[in-house]
Design a protein around this nucleic acid. Structure first.
Lengths: 187, 187
DNA sequence: CTGTTCATGTAAGAAGTTACATGATTTG
DNA sequence: CAAATCATGTAACTTCTTACATGAACAG
């Protein structure tokens, strides 16, 4: 093997595993991966085309995926498949024993944290906005995402639907919590 | 007024409001702001010294805060105060009617999404790790953060404690949800 | 008198986003 | 046949992080 087949080592980050995972679910082109994330992982791991394409190229150069031409009519397209090493890397990540500490970044909660600066009326309005945001998120998960995930779940992957349910149930919980807070602010 | 007092306009982002909000809570130096975020907003808006100092300087140049010397012995220190414009900007942000859509980024949920690639045993182990992460987060919020927030809450700010309770209750919910899932995986 | 905390700041780099650029195909 | 979608990629920029650099004060 010449240098054309040489393998460049790379550091795998969560975005790399997002792509490996999508390939494992049978999504094969960069464009299709972005589409899939828009309707599924968007709520807990959004991404963009400008992140997907270079990442696929890097995974290809490090031998974790293999690209082939897959034109559709006169329109060129690349199809990617995981290699044995790619599958091994995905499973190794999924099995790695220490989870990174949970830390999400949310402007809404930051606002709530500083809500003492507002009048009672405005405090209530803020809580109402946060509550309807949680309600909207839950509604989207139940109406759009969960049905798609459940359609896969016959003999296929179960976890997309499980994650959608976890999300929907959690946002329902938050919504009720904020509704109680809103009521308390009345008194 | 000469150019020395000229005001540079700046775009305010959530990290700017984090600082304005902390100043409003009475935290006055850059170092102290970072300390405060480490024990409070860390779970929903982490930050670093290298983000805080330049942001304070920018807020000063745009007239939203005012710096003064506040040395402690032979050790120099800057104390910052909000200006009228700074207070107005904070309140305007808190009152702004459209909340940005909720999207958090979490590697743990991403793993769960792809958990079909694992054996039953490994699936269960992953769920257990995620559950204990939620339990640890809840425990930290209840044991370390909530007491500090409640200490403020006499006649001072109420919302730090409210946010800590919302977080702790939500992670308790997630924990129970994952415990049920773990049990289902037994059968 | 040593290690930790207080205190401020910069430099370099990582990670991801929006906007730009291009062109084929499909749908109404 | 026009608009939307499929498809790939780059450039410029934003935001944030870790590491570096420096030094005073305090605690055991």
């Amino acid at each position: 093997m010449g240098p054309a087949n040489s393998i460049e080592p790379m550091k795998l980050r969560p975005s790399s595993f997002l792509i490996l995972g999508m390939l494992r679910l049978g999504v094969s082109s960069g464009y299709a991966i972005k589409k899939a994330t828009d309707i599924t992982t968007r709520f807990f791991w959004p991404t963009s085309l400008a992140a997907v394409y270079p990442e696929l190229a890097k995974l290809d150069r490090s031998g974790l995926v293999k690209r082939r031409d897959d034109p559709h009519g006169g329109r060129s397209r690349s199809a990617y498949e995981m290699t044995r090493q790619g599958r091994a890397a995905l499973v190794k990540w999924l099995r790695s024993p220490h989870e990174v500490p949970l830390q999400f970044r949310d402007e809404g909660v930051l606002k709530l944290y500083f809500a003492d600066a507002l009048s009672q009326r405005d405090q209530q309005a803020l809580v109402r906005r946060l509550r309807s945001r949680a309600r909207d998120t839950e509604a989207q998960l139940r109406a759009e995402i969960l049905p798609l995930a459940e359609a896969l779940a016959g003999d296929g992957p179960q976890y997309p639907a499980i994650v959608a349910r976890l999300g929907a149930d959690t946002y329902a919980f938050v919504q009720e919590w904020l509704a109680r807070l809103e009521k308390e602010l009345d008194t």
